[in-house]
Design a protein around this nucleic acid. Structure first.
Lengths: 337, 337
DNA sequence: GTGAAAGCGCTAACAT
DNA sequence: ATGTTAGCGCTTTCAC
């Protein structure tokens, strides 16, 4: 087994309390004693057993981040940002993948595994507003995303409706009138798909353009291949359109790919707009005009909020959701004016 | 505080041992007792304190995965695969980002934080062969990548040299004679860059083609933007080339982007080959011909090997590295003959 | 300034 | 079949 406080204490000829004091940099220790202890620690290569410390303190210094799948770039970039922010607060991050499956999400929320960490940043995809009660849990929880609103937990999210409306306005401002949508979810009201489609419709309405359901195509998982498939479906309908709004970047990139296969040129024939501002959006061919939804802010705010809950610095009841600022990033797939 | 075994035992009118037996599904319990305990557990909403259990058992059921950065797609896909494999063995995964920085990698290896988990899957980027001694640690460790070889630890990696040679052969087989390289590392012998460049040179040599250093451009971080910059540099040299080997997919995609900006057509003027077979390589425009290095196998083998070490099922000394099988995936950027 | 001892919640001998 | 008890390694009163 590894060395313990007792081993160090014995070697240094002091009690374990003194060793503990040295480790936790308790101020009032005689320099000679301190040095003796430090030499013993070095000699034995002692490192404290964090599990024991955690049991004693009731805290682990770790948080859980639960998201659908790291293979989806949006979530990979989210995880990267969360881990980086957590490190600034000396927290480590345990990452769970739910696959966006409702049952696995519900299971996770009551999993004993969560006892291994101090709190949870939770980005559900399969759960919906009906599952709101499952978010009433006994541990610190920060909710991400737009599947569930007004739950009694801290909620950090983005301005989906406003941002999608701004994205649509942008295309309208470039003179487009028949804007196709890729990646909608049948009958969804909340959720990224539902909210972004609503923003799209609001923009059309304000511009006095009728909503044409034939311009909307569906895709369950927001994956490149589904963006391509969804676009092929649109093309097969034979209905003319002059722009495409991919409800996220991956869909938009897949759609561009399908457009190109079909001989349509971007941006000459069709403008394409995405949503997420993934790193990759700046380097596709053509580069992708998109919405930057403020992910770094979301990651930072989520980690800080959770940390305040864990440390008890905030016992305020969670209020309404906090929203990140967004911004349109104009690139080649739909160049500005 | 949360409820404990004692609370459950008191409510059920039994001893804590009995409750413990029920929880750990010890076979010999009277059905009536079992039911009483289960009702008490449900009533109190009891969940076991894993930290305490871990302290007792000496295991946590968690492993650490340390990698450079989740924003790099290759590592995001690796993490996704590792987490999925770990889940099959009921392990959870704590993800650490080192930024590919040598000092942070060395620090991590001796960080007390690792005591929070049972073992480490370590993918270094900044460390080199000189740091081999740092891999002699007191906990189960599985090494990934190609920065360090012949360390006294289990090592799972890919056939960099063979695969790069095969990739180059593929381009040679298509009649190309001036194959540029994007993303080399100055003077590197080991490491993905060094090994892949070596494979490239071996292929040239076997084909009787002289190695031209002017065809090789450098990039430290294997990031899209650096692939583009690296390619612009090559173009600026004004030296003719008829194919490009990006030492990974991200570089190749960035390079394709720069080629396009410069008015070069892929594959009409220039063939492009990548390395990694990222999901995204199938959906770029044009889609990217690349090397599939067998990442799923690597993830699976790494997790299983670590698990065997942790559970003590393998006390065999670690042997030479284990190599994944690779395969060339022909797509549009360099279509097969 | 330092030591002794209790106890965090659990598991596993050992006892009955 | 179930109860008792001793720790896992640490922190933290409370003495001295």
């Amino acid at each position: 087994m590894s060395t313990t406080l007792h081993d160090v204490a014995r070697l240094a000829g002091v009690s374990i309390k003194t060793v503990s004091n040295v480790i936790n940099s308790y101020p009032h220790i005689r320099p000679a004693t301190r040095e003796r202890v430090e030499r013993a620690i070095a000699e034995l290569g002692y490192t404290p057993n964090l599990t024991a410390r955690n049991l004693r303190s009731g805290r682990t210094g770790a948080i859980t981040l639960a998201l659908p799948y790291l293979g989806l770039s949006y979530f990979a970039e989210l995880a990267a940002a969360v881990i980086a922010e957590a490190e600034k607060l000396s927290l480590v991050v345990l990452v769970e993948q739910t696959g966006g499956d409702r049952d696995r999400e519900l299971d996770l929320l009551k999993s004993p595994r969560l006892k291994l960490t101090d709190g949870l940043i939770f980005s559900p995809l399969g759960m919906s507003q009906d599952d709101i009660d499952a978010l009433t849990v006994s541990y610190p929880l920060v909710l991400l995303g737009e599947r569930i609103f007004n739950a009694p937990v801290d909620h950090i999210t983005m301005r989906n409706i406003d941002a999608a409306r701004a994205a649509t306005d942008y295309l309208l401002g470039l003179g487009r009138r028949r804007i196709a949508v890729v990646g909608a979810h049948e009958g969804e009201v909340f959720g990224s798909a539902g909210l972004r489609l609503r923003g799209y419709r609001e923009a059309l309405e304000r511009a006095g353009i009728a909503y044409d359901p034939n311009l909307v195509s569906y895709a369950t998982l927001w994956h490149r291949s589904n963006g391509a498939r969804s676009m092929r479906e649109l093309l097969d309908r034979g209905i003319p359109f002059d722009a495409v709004f991919g409800l996220n970047d991956t869909l938009a990139l897949g759609a561009m790919r399908a457009l190109q296969e079909a001989g349509r040129r971007v941006p000459d024939d069709i403008l394409v707009m995405g949503f997420d501002n993934l790193d990759e959006a700046g380097y596709s061919i053509p580069s992708l005009t998109t919405v930057d939804p403020g992910q770094p802010w979301i990651a930072r705010t989520a980690v800080q909020t959770l940390h305040r809950r864990i440390t008890g610095h905030s016992s305020l009841p969670p209020v309404a959701a906090q929203f990140a600022e967004f911004e349109i990033v104009a690139r080649e797939s739909a160049p500005a004016g």
